[in-house]
Write a protein that binds this DNA or RNA. Structure first.
Length: 515
DNA sequence: CGATTTTGACCAGCGC
DNA sequence: GCGCTGGTCAAAATCG
């Protein structure tokens, strides 16, 4: 356990660093109009954050680390650029040429800044993936007795798989395409055992890894890839303008019902697209996830007096991501946001957390379904593994039309459940809330429990559940990031008024129409 | 005037 | 086959 604590120590540090990376003042274009009446879960301007000075200091520290690690002398703040520009301007003659030169220089530095920021994110992503890998390996070494068991063989297999996938995962900057991969265009698999691995290991799988945003370098482009998923998007992108409505509809329909035929029950369990639902208390219209959405419909759902609003991502043409926002019927202070699909474009840092969370959760959900010979695994068991301290925090529904994982953030875990002194954690954030520091422990404990807990030890199902989770390092990371962002930065009931201080027309209009 | 929202209509899936 | 429901479309309305 001590070993694991040590790992958690650094785990916390890097998870939080990773979180913090998303707060770096990247020059995200301001044209990404934000719905300011949203419950701003992932805002990088959250007023609840403590003093900016501390953050700046933290950035400096992290910057130093990064410079050491990468050898890059990154310009991580726009302030640096603008300061330099100011100095240049102040010391230069008022000539137009000089000003143009300064502006050119400023533009150049800005673009370089953006590029380096992207690299920084990528490096951190890779670093974190490796870190998770190490944690898992050490976990593996810690439980040698389990190595002879069949279940552990499966986990070993997953580790092997993950080793191979590490390269791939590290290439996935923003588009965590595993769910996409696993739920689309997979070759038929007759064997139910190990089919998940087979699917991942197959050349087909490797051929169809979604290209990372950095490889394409075509922000906003529909992509020029061999990946059928991208091809589909490309087609969608290119033909949207002139294709008949029927075809468009069928594209989306086929997207929703991918052809996946590993086996009959497998087919039933996985051909439906995974959804990630987030429940949170908020008086605001909807939570802010950093993405840009356009409302395309509203419908009154059965059994709920509150209408459901349908949004699609408009950050890139042809982005297949949709989300539904609806108030809970029983508790109208709760907003339920359901995400579906994978972004086919790079996301701003503020959007990465939620996107990664939903993507990884969907991936976990689908890989979990695939790894169970009985189809979908016991959802409650998986939820308990995910969040043993708060079994109601994550629930998985296999009975819904689409497999859905629900992250219930309306009740934060009880800090008293975690006896660990806070000083044991290296928390670079100022005044972290207790739950903030505890979150990584939740997952660490969940993984540790997989072999220690008597309740789980004998359960092959739980081993499968754990394997599914460990096979997806992104999930825990992203989930931690998202939940800690929310718990750490937002007190919905208290902050809702703050978040609502600025309202624009569309929000109030939408709020009026929905609520 | 372009972008976005609204809203009624349409379509597919599902259960009976 | 029929009705119900969820999801989407697209013309009209609205806004900045």
């Amino acid at each position: 356990m001590a070993k694991f604590d040590i790992m958690n120590h650094s785990f916390d540090h890097h998870v939080l660093n990773s979180l913090h990376d998303q707060e770096l003042p990247v020059a995200v274009p301001e044209e990404q109009r934000r719905l300011v009446n949203e419950m701003d879960f992932f805002s990088d301007k959250n007023p609840s954050r403590d003093s900016r000075n501390v953050e700046i200091k933290k950035e400096s520290v992290q910057q130093s680390e990064l410079n050491v690690n990468t050898g890059l002398n990154l310009l991580t703040t726009n302030t640096t650029v603008s300061d330099k520009a100011t100095v240049d301007k102040g010391g230069s003659p008022p000539g137009t040429d000089k000003r143009t030169s300064n502006e050119t220089e400023l533009n150049r530095m800005n673009s370089e800044n953006q590029r380096l920021k992207a690299m920084l994110n990528q490096v951190n992503n890779k670093f974190y993936t490796l870190q998770m890998h190490i944690v898992t390996l050490m976990q593996q070494q810690k439980n040698p007795k389990a190595e002879s068991t069949e279940e552990t063989k499966m986990i070993d297999g997953d580790l092997e798989e993950r080793r191979r996938r590490n390269v791939l995962v590290s290439r996935q900057f923003m588009d965590l395409g595993q769910a996409l991969i696993s739920d689309k265009d997979e070759p038929p698999q007759s064997s139910s055992e190990g089919r998940n691995r087979d699917c991942y290991e197959s050349p087909h799988y490797r051929e169809h890894i979604p290209m990372a945003a950095f490889e394409s370098q075509n922000y906003g482009n529909c992509g020029d890839h061999e990946n059928p998923a991208f091809d589909r998007r490309k087609t969608d992108c290119e033909e949207r303008e002139d294709s008949p409505r029927e075809q468009d509809f069928q594209e989306w329909t086929s997207n929703k019902v991918p052809k996946l035929q590993c086996s009959k029950d497998f087919d039933q369990a996985t051909t439906r697209k995974a959804r990630v639902s987030v429940r949170a208390r908020s008086e605001a219209t909807m939570i802010s996830d950093g993405c840009q959405w356009r409302k395309y419909g509203q419908k009154k759902a059965k059994g709920n007096p509150c209408p459901r609003a349908y949004y699609r991502c408009t950050m890139a043409v042809g982005c297949p991501v949709r989300k539904q926002v609806q108030r809970c019927a029983t508790d109208q202070t709760t907003v339920i946001t359901t995400y579906e699909g994978q972004h086919n474009h790079p996301l701003p840092p503020a959007a990465m957390t939620m996107a990664s969370t939903t993507s990884a959760a969907a991936s976990m959900l689908l890989s979990g379904s695939m790894s169970s010979a009985d189809g979908l695994m016991n959802s409650n068991a998986l939820a308990r593994t995910l969040l043993p301290c708060s079994p109601n925090m994550a629930t998985i529904s296999a009975s819904a039309p689409f497999p859905t994982i629900t992250l219930d953030l309306t009740n934060s875990p009880n800090p008293s459940q975690f006896q660990r002194p806070q000083s044991q954690f290296h928390v670079p954030f100022p005044n972290p809330p207790p739950t903030f520091a505890s979150m990584p422990q939740i997952f660490g404990q969940a993984l540790y429990n997989q072999s220690e807990s008597s309740g789980l030890e004998s359960s092959q199902e739980m081993m499968r559940a754990t394997a599914a989770i460990t096979a997806d390092p992104n999930f825990t990371a992203a989930l931690i990031a998202a939940i800690t962002s929310i718990i750490g930065n937002v007190q919905p009931e208290r902050n809702s008024s703050n978040n609502n201080t600025i309202r624009n027309h569309s929000e109030s209009k939408m709020e009026d129409s929905i609520y």
